[in-house]
Design a protein around this nucleic acid. Sequence first.
DNA 1: CATTTGATTCAATAAAAAATGAAATGAATG
DNA 2: CATTCATTTCATTTTTTATTGAATCAAATG
Lengths: 169, 169
Amino acid sequence: MSSTGESVTEGKGRLSELDIEAIEMFINFFKLIGLPKSVGEIYGLLFVATRPLAMDDLMERLQISLGAASQGLKLLRAVGAVKVVYTPGERRDRYVADLELSRFASSFIKEELRPRLERSLQRIERMEGLAEAMSPKERKAAFERIDRLKHWMEKGQKMMPWILKFLVR
Amino acid sequence: MSSTGESVTEGKGRLSELDIEAIEMFINFFKLIGLPKSVGEIYGLLFVATRPLAMDDLMERLQISLGAASQGLKLLRAVGAVKVVYTPGERRDRYVADLELSRFASSFIKEELRPRLERSLQRIERMEGLAEAMSPKERKAAFERIDRLKHWMEKGQKMMPWILKFLVR
DNA sequence: CATTTGATTCAATAAAAAATGAAATGAATG
DNA sequence: CATTCATTTCATTTTTTATTGAATCAAATG
């Protein structure tokens, strides 16, 4: 094996410099959207791997615990970023990274962003209810602020499908 | 004062139900982009307020510490979400929320997202350097993965100006 | 230019989030 | 159907992040 070239991706060795660079990229990216380091590591290693990896591989190569590996995979599966590969005649599952960003992003939007927006819109309705009960003068000021909020939310809502469209392909 | 209507926004009272609803919205929103609760509270109260507030007001009404108020305002100012209002014949500064989402979002993209992407692209260059040093067989596999990464990054980079354009206005 | 008042900094503390690993669960094998 | 191996769960520990407030700094006032 050459000194830089030995990708842990093959065989059982340590992680190569290249692997580490790539994994760090994913750690950063996942942190950005609020996911823990271990999740980024797992996805990164799977992304970089040339074949499906089992949980043991992840634990050994990333030096993470059983629990972290299991929970990280659970999350990544739930979000569609990682797929299970059933190998016939093999007891344990193996995992691969889904390379299509779009699926991942769209599930992030569907499961994280959209519900939040919806809760916000409900909240605005409740606020409008509260404002109704105010004196005319107060009501006017209240509705001004509520309308500003609404404006924000609607903008956000309009934008999301577009981002999705852009990502998907 | 009516029971629901007394907005702390005016005078020195407690926060009204309406104020609290609005502030909670901002806490959620700010959490989404990884900012602490206190920052969301501050922006929320300023958003909801009908006139500029001083640091004391924030501390008193939100029940946060001196440090939290100062640091939160510092961050919000840096990011363009809050402006200082100098009142002539007034010793302390007063603050208002900048209501234009666009400015805020664009500074977030400029200061958080874009630098990250740039670092990622640099990282990819480094990775290409590492891959050059590999055996032909390994190099091929490495470049395959690197190209996948590049694809992601370029997509992200292309999308950002568009999102900005959508937000600004 | 001494004093007062408002704002910032930062070391200490509190709170929240993530990681660990032992125990429970589930499922394949002989 | 007992055993073994893989995975999940979850109470505990560790790490990270946010908050506090005393000490410092800055700048306006008299």
